[in-house]
């Protein structure tokens, strides 16, 4: 006898069978978790992932949820899932931590598949207090060469440290031995770096255009006032930023703090420059067809041109490279930076 329970059970079973587990575009899972290498929802990693996840979701008709779990938990989640239901978005920090030997960080090129790049944050920068005797990077490197200790507040083991490494490298190239006068003050968040400056614990701090630009607009007698001395991005990258720049600082102003106007030499002939690039990572056993599907979707999204507008509004530079090109590009970048780090370690 057919009763209500049987009808309900039959309906449930039918629903289960007809609900496709993988029935969306190019066989991508219908629900994808995008873990990111940051636990903050206020930072550039979350912003970038939100833009990319939204664009992919609407283009493919699937659900993508961004989970800010941090690098370690993000990689663990990625390792556990080869089905393609978990992907990761992070930036250069993931291989820089390995190159700097931060405990617990393995070679991402060996353990994961490097996916497509999506954007650059051109904001990585260094600042001094408004009343600092240092007007430029040249002043800082000259002071180091003259035997003055220059304290630089950074967060070790990542993008924050690479600029510091480049400063030490430039000091070494200009005056061997003077790199010992560029010393790191290890701090954590941007708040800690700012506080280190205000407590006179650091002469120079690592910061970003987005987080620090307003401090550069304060009156010079304000104890919180700062000045940019170096923006690490490549000039070609900064050139793509909106002409209005950010806040009261125009793109032309920013270019004055980047190479070639501000020179932090790599080898005496060429300047060091560094773009903070965001890219996807996949489980190494994930079906390449799924990776291709994401590549294709992103290529179509960037061809449409809408995502670039959103990225530009958030002061990011669109930078789509399919995964093969991204791997080649990021491997070369990692190798180049690894060389600088190892040269300094060998001293």
């Amino acid at each position: 006898m057919i009763n209500r329970r049987i009808v309900l059970a039959a309906l449930s079973a039918a629903l289960l069978v007809t609900t496709p587990l993988v029935a969306h575009a190019q066989n991508l899972p219908g629900n994808i978790r995008m873990v990111i290498g940051s636990t903050s929802t206020g930072g550039d990693t979350y912003q970038n992932s939100a833009i990319v996840a939204e664009a992919l979701s609407s283009h493919l008709g699937i659900n993508i949820k961004v989970d800010p779990v941090g690098t370690s938990e993000g990689l663990k989640a990625l390792e556990r899932d080869a089905r393609g239901t978990t992907i990761m978005l992070h930036h250069d920090q993931i291989y820089l931590s390995y190159l700097y030997g931060v405990p617990g960080n393995d070679d991402p090129f060996a353990n994961y598949v490097i996916g497509p790049t999506v954007a650059i944050n051109p904001g990585d920068s260094f600042l001094v207090p408004a009343d600092s005797p240092y007007q430029s990077m040249d002043d800082i490197l000259t002071a180091a060469a003259d035997g003055t200790k220059v304290r630089v507040a950074i967060q070790p083991g990542g993008v924050s440290e690479i600029g510091f490494t480049a400063m030490r490298n430039a000091a070494k190239v200009r005056s061997p031995g003077s790199e010992e006068n560029i010393v790191a003050v290890n701090t954590g968040s941007q708040a800690d770096k700012n506080q280190a400056m205000w407590d006179d614990l650091a002469d120079v701090i690592n910061g970003s255009i987005q987080a620090n630009e307003q401090f550069t607009q304060l009156p010079a007698d304000d104890p919180k006032a700062m000045r940019f001395v170096w923006i690490t991005a490549r000039p070609a990258t900064l050139d793509q930023a909106p002409e209005a720049g950010m806040g009261a600082t125009t793109r032309a102003d920013f270019l004055q703090y980047a190479s070639p106007a501000t020179s932090v030499t790599l080898d005496g002939t060429e300047d060091f420059a560094f773009d903070k690039e965001f890219f996807l990572l996949y489980n190494k056993d994930m079906d390449p067809a799924l990776m291709d599907a994401i590549d294709t979707a992103l290529a179509e999204i960037y061809a449409e041109g809408e995502i670039q507008k959103r990225q530009a509004e958030a002061f990011f530079i669109p930078n789509y490279l399919p995964r093969a090109e991204a791997l080649e590009h990021l491997s070369a970048k990692s190798e180049r930076i690894g060389g600088i780090i190892n040269d300094l370690k060998a001293e």
């Binding site: 931060v102 617990g104 967060q155 070790p156 083991g157 990542g158 290890n186 954590g188 968040s189 800690d192």
Partner: peptide, 8 residues
């Protein structure tokens, strides 16, 4: 944690 200013 290095994000807290630690040594990792």
């Amino acid at each position: 944690d290095v994000t807290d200013g630690g040594n990792g």
